[in-house]
């Protein structure tokens, strides 16, 4: 189920902007952990569980890789674990790497959710009036890679079943060149046909079913309030040379709690809508 995407594009855009802004710029482990669980639970709701499980393994590997590489390049920090060639490997650098890895993972998951929620129709609606070219390019690129993968799969299967005894590498190369040729041809056809339909013009009007309702306004207001509350506390974390953990005073706790709510809103919304749907079905 993906009922979250029925919100108005402006509301959705600002929601993701806020969440990504805090995830990327706060550099606070607590914020990142909230963001990680909030985004992954929402992602599990809107796509299938198997894919999510697979991607969780990928993110964990990513976090470990960044954690292991950061101390090799950064030797700042007071707690020394051991020395390699006069350079110290420190606990602070290790933890900084872990937080950095978590930050990358959280940003990637939020962007995946954004991709599933914000389809090309919404992008055209959102950017179409002011930046028609950009919107066109953006929606075409988003469409390009899945199309390319699909046709690669088809051509590769055809090559495999054609009876030729090529090695795997040769077959992949053949299919790859075929895919590139096909996609170039497709690009020409697509651009011709889109130009004929008046895409990329400033005066072109779009039909869209998006209506900014009271519901959207409420949701937007709630996310703005929660976002500004999360910025209230002084939650900056210092890593080098010693950890400086921000004090847990009322303002900080307020901002932690509001970010926790902010990052779990889509998940809670999906759960609520799912329960409602089940309830209505049971009545029939």
């Amino acid at each position: 189920m993906n009922t979250f995407k029925n919100f108005h594009p402006i509301t959705l855009f600002f929601y993701f902007l806020f969440v990504l802004f805090i995830s990327i710029f706060s550099f606070n482990p607590l914020f990142l952990i909230f963001g990680f669980f909030g985004s992954i639970s929402f992602y599990a709701c809107i796509s299938d569980f198997k894919a999510v499980f697979k991607s969780i393994i990928f993110y964990i590997i990513l976090i470990f890789a960044v954690t292991a590489t950061n101390p090799i390049f950064s030797h700042n920090g007071a707690t020394v674990l051991f020395f390699i060639n006069d350079n110290r490997i420190t606990l602070e650098a290790l933890i900084y790497g872990a937080v950095l890895g978590l930050m990358i993972a959280v940003a990637v998951i939020w962007f995946r959710c954004f991709n599933l929620v914000f389809d090309s129709e919404k992008i055209l609606y959102f950017l179409g009036k002011s930046f028609p070219r950009l919107a066109l390019v953006f929606s075409m690129t988003l469409n390009f890679i899945p199309n390319l993968l699909r046709s690669f799969k088809n051509i590769n299967t055809a090559q495999r079943l054609s009876g030729k005894k090529n090695s795997r590498i040769k077959r992949y190369l053949n299919s790859f060149s075929a895919v590139i040729t096909q996609s170039m041809e497709n690009a020409m056809i697509t651009s011709d046909s889109m130009r004929a339909r008046g895409y990329g013009l400033k005066k072109r009007t779009f039909y869209s079913r998006f209506k900014f309702t009271f519901y959207d306004l409420t949701y937007l207001a709630v996310s703005i309030v929660l976002f500004s509350l999360s910025l209230v506390g002084n939650t900056s974390f210092e890593f080098y040379p010693y950890f400086v953990i921000p004090k847990s005073d009322t303002l900080n706790i307020l901002s932690y709690v509001s970010f926790l709510i902010l990052s779990f809103i889509p998940f809670l919304f999906e759960v609520k809508e799912g329960a409602k749907w089940k309830f209505l079905i049971s009545k029939i």
């Binding site: 020394v80 674990l81 051991f82 020395f83 390699i84 060639n85 110290r88």
Partner: peptide, 11 residues
């Protein structure tokens, strides 16, 4: 192989 790894006390 090009690295020498030492504990802080050793170092």
């Amino acid at each position: 192989s090009g690295c020498s790894i030492k504990s802080p006390d050793d170092y």
